[in-house]
Design a protein around this nucleic acid. Structure first.
Lengths: 153, 153
DNA sequence: TATTGTTATACTCTATAACTATA
DNA sequence: TATAGTTATAGAGTATAACAATA
């Protein structure tokens, strides 16, 4: 037994702990920054998808965000009740709901999005500009699906 | 309006998305690696705390893992039923349960922990050794609580 | 028959409140 | 009175199944 293992027994050194804590702290910051605007980060995600490319069907939005279509229903219910988006049947396929931003929704997105980005930047503030960029780069590599499981035939 | 903002409107560029996906993929890998051993990553966390420092009271374990004491009850219930840990009243304070590993639990921890570490390493495999170390380093910085909010008096 | 949206339902994870037994 | 553990309960968040309307 060549037990040259580094004894990674400190719970605070476990990678899953580090990533989970990072996520918790980031979302706590973002939630606090978003609280004054009346919608949460998932609702902001919907607006973010719509802002550059509307109207879209509910399922298209759900697909782009990687969330369940059933989750999208309640999300859009809330945004519609707040007057942020409208839901109108798509004339070309009346099964579809065309989801579009209202003028108020567009304004709300701009201010909330600025607060959101500021919260992200605050979270990254302990890192140098270069380290922050590295952090994003490494995350993108880790979640890319081309993680070489011998793709070459 | 000097709108020199970089237009961070792609949901896949949002930091929260990157961190959440990283967490999801890591935990999926770890869960799969742990499945054959009959306990999950939270239960393994309990064993990891105990392996170097047993016996401990339930609340001490809960405190070290940062989980609720009520969550710990069910966790230890499962481990006790599987014969991995024992729960015996602490003679010096009979309110306390002294939680200790059994011999079988010690063995189970060693094999499961090796599989766990291998899963973490697989997750990090797309990164160079140096980048993997950097990733851990940046995470530690981001979750450290000494994030300089003007601590000097 | 297949698809969009919807509702109802269930499941996981976690936290809160109230209880017991000890101190 | 205060604390360790326990139970019951409730709240997010998310997923599955069944259904209506439409294609």
């Amino acid at each position: 037994m060549t037990s040259a293992e580094p004894q990674r027994n400190d719970p605070r050194d476990v990678l899953g702990y580090l990533v989970k804590q990072a996520h918790l702290r980031l979302t706590a910051r973002v939630d606090a920054a978003l609280a004054p605007f009346g919608f949460d980060r998932r609702a902001l995600g919907v607006l973010r998808v719509l802002i550059d490319d509307e109207p879209l069907s509910q399922q298209t939005v759900a697909g782009r965000l990687g969330v369940d279509p059933t989750t999208m229903v309640a999300l859009i219910d809330g945004l519609e009740a707040a007057g942020t988006v409208t839901r109108t049947p798509d004339p070309s396929d009346r099964r579809r709901n065309a989801v579009a931003l209202t003028a108020a929704g567009r304004d709300a997105y701009r201010t909330a999005s600025a607060a959101f980005t500021a919260a992200e930047d605050e979270f990254l503030a302990p890192l140098s500009t270069q380290d922050a960029a590295t952090f994003r780069r490494l995350l993108r590599i880790l979640i890319s699906d081309e993680t070489a499981t011998g793709t070459r035939p």
